[in-house]
Simulated scan of single mutants.
Amino acid sequence: MSEELKTIKELADELGVNKQNVQYHIKSLPNKERLKNEKGQEQLNNQVSKKWYQFWK
């Protein structure tokens, strides 16, 4: 996969919001947009991350 993936924590840190806030909103995303890494952490692709930047900024 060539896309840059971000964990919920990474995205929350970049946006200056808490992780729980991002997790709450992530639940509304379709499953195909939510990925998990080998540690079981949810990750977001670059396209979804950009949507969040627009929403929070």
Score class of each variant (00 low, 15 high):
residue 2 S to N: 12
residue 2 S to W: 05
residue 2 S to F: 03
residue 2 S to T: 10
residue 3 E to H: 09
residue 3 E to L: 11
residue 4 E to G: 00
residue 4 E to Y: 01
residue 4 E to Q: 11
residue 4 E to T: 02
residue 5 L to D: 03
residue 6 K to R: 15
residue 6 K to A: 07
residue 7 T to V: 11
residue 9 K to N: 12
residue 9 K to R: 15
residue 9 K to V: 12
residue 9 K to P: 00
residue 10 E to P: 02
residue 10 E to F: 02
residue 10 E to Q: 14
residue 11 L to S: 11
residue 12 A to Q: 07
residue 13 D to V: 01
residue 14 E to Y: 01
residue 14 E to H: 03
residue 14 E to S: 11
residue 15 L to F: 04
residue 15 L to V: 06
residue 15 L to E: 10
residue 15 L to K: 13
residue 16 G to F: 05
residue 16 G to N: 13
residue 17 V to W: 00
residue 18 N to R: 13
residue 18 N to D: 14
residue 20 Q to I: 09
residue 20 Q to T: 13
residue 20 Q to E: 13
residue 20 Q to Y: 08
residue 21 N to V: 08
residue 21 N to D: 06
residue 21 N to C: 13
residue 22 V to G: 09
residue 22 V to M: 11
residue 22 V to R: 08
residue 23 Q to A: 14
residue 23 Q to I: 09
residue 23 Q to F: 07
residue 24 Y to H: 12
residue 24 Y to V: 11
residue 25 H to N: 14
residue 26 I to T: 13
residue 26 I to D: 04
residue 26 I to W: 00
residue 27 K to F: 03
residue 28 S to M: 03
residue 28 S to E: 07
residue 29 L to Y: 03
residue 29 L to P: 01
residue 29 L to M: 11
residue 29 L to N: 04
residue 29 L to E: 06
residue 29 L to Q: 07
residue 29 L to S: 05
residue 30 P to A: 06
residue 32 K to M: 12
residue 32 K to G: 01
residue 32 K to S: 13
residue 33 E to P: 00
residue 33 E to V: 06
residue 33 E to W: 08
residue 34 R to N: 07
residue 34 R to C: 13
residue 35 L to F: 12
residue 35 L to T: 11
residue 35 L to H: 15
residue 36 K to C: 01
residue 36 K to I: 02
residue 36 K to R: 15
residue 37 N to I: 01
residue 37 N to L: 04
residue 38 E to P: 00
residue 38 E to V: 04
residue 39 K to A: 02
residue 39 K to N: 01
residue 39 K to V: 00
residue 40 G to C: 00
residue 41 Q to F: 04
residue 41 Q to E: 08
residue 42 E to S: 08
residue 43 Q to A: 11
residue 43 Q to P: 00
residue 43 Q to E: 12
residue 44 L to F: 09
residue 44 L to P: 04
residue 44 L to Y: 10
residue 45 N to E: 11
residue 45 N to T: 10
residue 46 N to Y: 06
residue 46 N to C: 06
residue 47 Q to L: 12
residue 47 Q to M: 09
residue 48 V to G: 06
residue 48 V to Q: 10
residue 48 V to I: 14
residue 51 K to D: 08
residue 51 K to H: 08
residue 52 W to H: 04
residue 53 Y to F: 08
residue 53 Y to A: 05
residue 54 Q to M: 09
residue 55 F to N: 07
residue 55 F to Y: 15
residue 56 W to L: 05
residue 56 W to C: 06
residue 56 W to K: 03
residue 56 W to I: 02
residue 57 K to A: 11
residue 57 K to W: 03
